[in-house]
């Protein structure tokens, strides 16, 4: 099965949607790359916004309209904000930090590039002849609402329970951390060398 014979739509004559998808995809990919390589931690979060937003556009291009808005709402609106809060709460340095990458970088690069090469090879080999017909929109809000509350209502409810559990868990974890932190602060001033202080004097200084 040759490329030309099997594929009625060639790669050399892209449609407008394809061009848009490619361009936005490039931007998304570049933003993701910056996210995982930048030395500035807050910038990483901001570049993540770009990448996630780019993905939302891709969803729109794939006619999954509702998903796109959910993506923007939840990811860009809440998750990234949560991450930023996390960065602030852990006193992440603002500005360039030279050690944002660990010593595992080269191993990670090797694994990632190898994985990418393998997966791209497999995916291209498998799907190079397949064509997505985008004539009828597939993910309008009406369609999504109908299928979600007709066919997927039970998992949906289960998911709400999961979210509740996560909420409770997060609260419990934070409360415990508070209690422990208070106890440790009391004990730490007494001069006792608790195991948690094994992180070293530099960190203690940073805590102060």
């Amino acid at each position: 099965m040759t490329l030309a014979a099997a594929a009625p739509y060639g790669f050399l004559s892209p449609t407008g949607v394809e061009v848009s998808f490619l361009l936005v995809g490039l931007v998304t990919f570049a933003a993701a790359l910056v996210t995982v390589t930048t030395k500035q931690l807050v910038h990483a979060a901001l570049w993540l916004v770009v990448a996630l937003g780019g993905l939302a556009v891709e969803y729109l291009l794939l006619t999954a309209e509702f998903i796109a808005w959910v993506q923007v709402l939840i990811y860009v609106g809440s998750v990234v904000v949560l991450l930023l809060f996390g960065l602030m709460l852990t006193k992440a340095p603002i500005g360039r930090s030279p050690d944002a990458d660990s010593g595992n970088r080269w191993a990670a690069l090797t694994v990632a590039v190898a994985a990418a090469a393998t997966l791209v090879w497999v995916v291209v080999d498998a799907f190079r002849t397949q064509w997505i017909d985008l004539d009828a929109p597939q993910g309008t809000t009406a369609v999504t609402g109908a299928m979600l509350f007709q066919h997927w209502v039970l998992p949906f409810e289960a998911l709400s329970v999961l979210l509740l559990a996560a909420l409770v868990g997060a609260i419990v974890l934070s409360r415990k951390a508070d209690a422990k932190a208070d106890a440790k602060a009391d004990a730490g001033t007494g001069g006792a060398e608790s195991p948690a202080d094994a992180a070293g004097p530099a960190d203690k200084e940073r805590q102060r």
Binding site: S102, N104, A107, A108, V111, A114, A115, T118, V122
Partner: peptide, 22 residues
Amino acid sequence: GNVQTYLSALLAGSLVLAVAAV
């Protein structure tokens, strides 16, 4: 004790297995 090292080895191993399977 470095989780990332462990994870790298794990993923590299699964990658090799996946390639082999393919």
